[in-house]
Simulated scan of single mutants.
Amino acid sequence: MMLQQIYPSVNHPYAYELNKDFHFAAAHFVPADEAGKCRQLHGHTYYANVTVAGDELDTAGFLVNFAVIKRLIHDRFDHSLLNDDSESFNDKDPNRFPTTEVVARTICEIVQGHLDGTANRPQCVQVYLRETPTSYCIYRPKRKAGFDGS
């Protein structure tokens, strides 16, 4: 069971906002000398909050099914070595190292990839990813043209 937590809110123009909390256990290492101890293989229990927003509900009355968000991320990353997921991460491009920042962005990209295939097309507007009790990252994708109604 996760404790209730208040997350930083993201401004958006949508009528609905859905938040899904979940966690997953995964190992990683950061393949850069500047990473210090994090260059060594180690693991975390990551706590994530995914925020999806939109104006239209689907045929089930959902913005998106909570279970779908968890399945997309938890089933993919739980009890894995993130570095082995070559579709998401690699050890050549710093923008694809499995750092907290990149994992948060990747979660957003995976969720948005699913949402783009739905009829109501909601947007993943924020991913909050806690790596340790004292360290977390927030990723908010840049808004697309017309996102704010302009």
Rank of each mutant, 00 (worst) to 15 (best):
L63D: 11
L63G: 12
L63P: 12
L63W: 07
L63T: 14
V64Q: 06
V64P: 11
N65E: 13
N65H: 04
N65A: 10
N65W: 04
N65S: 10
F66W: 13
F66I: 12
F66E: 09
F66R: 05
F66A: 04
F66Y: 13
A67Y: 00
A67Q: 06
V68K: 09
V68D: 10
V68L: 04
V68F: 00
V68E: 13
V68I: 02
V68T: 11
I69G: 00
K70L: 08
K70S: 08
K70V: 15
K70T: 13
K70C: 11
K70A: 05
R71G: 10
R71P: 00
L72S: 02
L72G: 05
L72R: 05
L72V: 06
I73S: 13
I73H: 12
I73N: 11
I73A: 12
H74R: 05
H74V: 10
H74N: 13
H74K: 11
H74C: 09
H74F: 09
D75S: 00
D75L: 02
F77P: 00
F77Y: 08
D78C: 07
D78H: 02
D78R: 00
D78P: 00
H79E: 04
H79S: 01
H79I: 02
S80G: 07
L81T: 07
L82F: 06
L82P: 06
L82C: 08
L82Y: 02
L82G: 06
N83P: 03
N83G: 14
N83Y: 05
N83E: 08
N83W: 05
N83F: 11
D84T: 11
D84G: 04
D85I: 07
D85P: 04
S86V: 15
S86N: 13
S86D: 13
E87T: 14
S88T: 01
S88N: 12
S88Q: 01
S88G: 03
S88W: 02
S88K: 00
F89D: 11
F89Q: 09
F89Y: 13
F89V: 14
N90C: 06
N90T: 08
N90Y: 01
N90A: 01
N90L: 08
N90F: 00
D91F: 10
D91E: 14
D91W: 04
D91Q: 14
K92M: 11
D93T: 13
D93L: 02
P94W: 02
P94H: 01
P94V: 06
P94D: 06
N95E: 15
N95G: 15
